[in-house]
Design a protein around this nucleic acid. Structure first.
Lengths: 219, 219
DNA sequence: GACAATACCAAGCAAGCGCTTGGTTTGTAA
DNA sequence: TTACAAACCAAGCGCTTGCTTGGTATTGTC
């Protein structure tokens, strides 16, 4: 019992550490803003406000107040309000793509890979980047078509990770349904967790929730 | 082969007829607006525009133009813009609750009932009421809290239909995962079909899609 | 310390929004 | 035909929004 708890605690710490390493290397490569810097803090607050009130109902005055500056000052950092929205989306895709790739590398079998992807996506959606992930889903229409195109390119890289794993499972006979359809079902199902999942509810951890998803698919 | 096609065609016609009967009786009871009337036409166009551009980006001028009147005239029919949004939501829940109930009555086993609910919800989401159903999901935050409360009351009736069936399946041992979680996963998965499902894609009919969902759950 | 770059302030602009108001037109019933 | 209710028009109001502009303050570098 004590030994099991010690192992779980160590695994969590290892996972957190490597997530932090991934974040730091993305920051170093200027792919993601440092959450501690002015731009990063603004994006974090923007994601929160956009999630909470919607992009359209969040004014530049709201955004500025959230980081403690005047609204005109935002335009020193971003050309337009829309550029803020796009940055929220782009940066969360980059980070989560990297985290998904790490989850894949840590797994051996196709089934373990799928579990790793589900677990990682659930963590993205319900953890630190949850607000940005929800913004990606709910505020898509507020992006101009050119910006949508750019974000989609990044999104396609992320989606390919999923489809590759699901196609392996299909080939191995472990999955009966069409991988294309399954992925889209999972996208919807996992994205929706943002509206209802709370760890305190019945003690359902992210691992427990992942197990439920896998059970639901009889995997 | 010919006999099978004849049966399918007849089943479709029967289903369409009974859907129309359900709609007509809701209209008669003033629970839903007649799509052919001024109010109903406005709500149909509103659902379309809200889905397409978002509620916040759809102006009253847009709404008015869509039905061929001047913007000030809208306020003869609805007190505020928000009341239009709420009516779109309320009316689609009422209609789809009735359709779900009909699907339940047409089924015998718990598995058939679940299949009926999934099929009916997929039809709601991807058929005539698809725009309104998407508005229900994506525009929730634009509703004031009192209105959200009212819509939720109707929504809870609808959700209970699902939970009852899933709980039966759980008791019968056909479902391993938690019904509460499964329903929410299904909500997300099925709602998301609005973003990608097209009947022309690989010939996947609503029945075929329903089968994929059931297969994904190994049911 | 001097200078440049960066970050921020304060005031206000032009455009557009939901809605009101006074009026006209259309539909319905007697 | 008349009277009334319902539906619509046209003009415009008060307010809000994203953003600009001219300035000040702070930070970074040599």
């Amino acid at each position: 019992m004590f030994q099991v708890e010690l192992k779980a605690s160590y695994a969590n710490r290892v996972a957190v550490v490597s997530q932090n390493q991934i974040l730091q290397s993305l920051i170093a490569e200027n792919l993601v803003s440092d959450p501690k810097g002015a731009r990063g803090r603004l994006l974090t607050e923007a994601a929160r406000l956009f999630r909470e009130k919607g992009y359209e109902r969040t004014t530049v005055r709201d955004l500025a107040a959230a980081v403690g500056i005047q609204s005109g000052s935002l335009f020193h950092h971003f050309r337009t309000k829309e550029e803020i929205l796009k940055a929220v989306m782009v940066e969360t895709i980059r980070l989560n793509t990297a985290l998904m790739q790490a989850a894949l590398e840590a797994a051996d079998t196709s089934r373990q890979k799928l579990r790793g992807l589900i677990r990682a996506e659930l963590e993205s959606i319900n953890g630190q980047t949850g607000e940005a992930m929800a913004v990606l889903v709910f505020e898509w229409r507020s992006l101009s078509a050119p910006s949508q195109g750019e974000v989609l390119e990044l999104r396609d890289i992320y989606e390919k990770l999923w489809l590759d794993v699901l196609e392996s499972l299909k080939r191995e006979g472990a999955l009966e349904a069409d991988p294309f359809v399954v992925r889209r079902m999972l996208t919807g199902a996992l994205s929706w967790t943002v509206t209802w999942y709370k760890p305190e509810r019945g003690g359902l951890t992210l691992d427990g929730l992942t197990d439920q998803v896998m059970a639901m698919m009889a995997l």
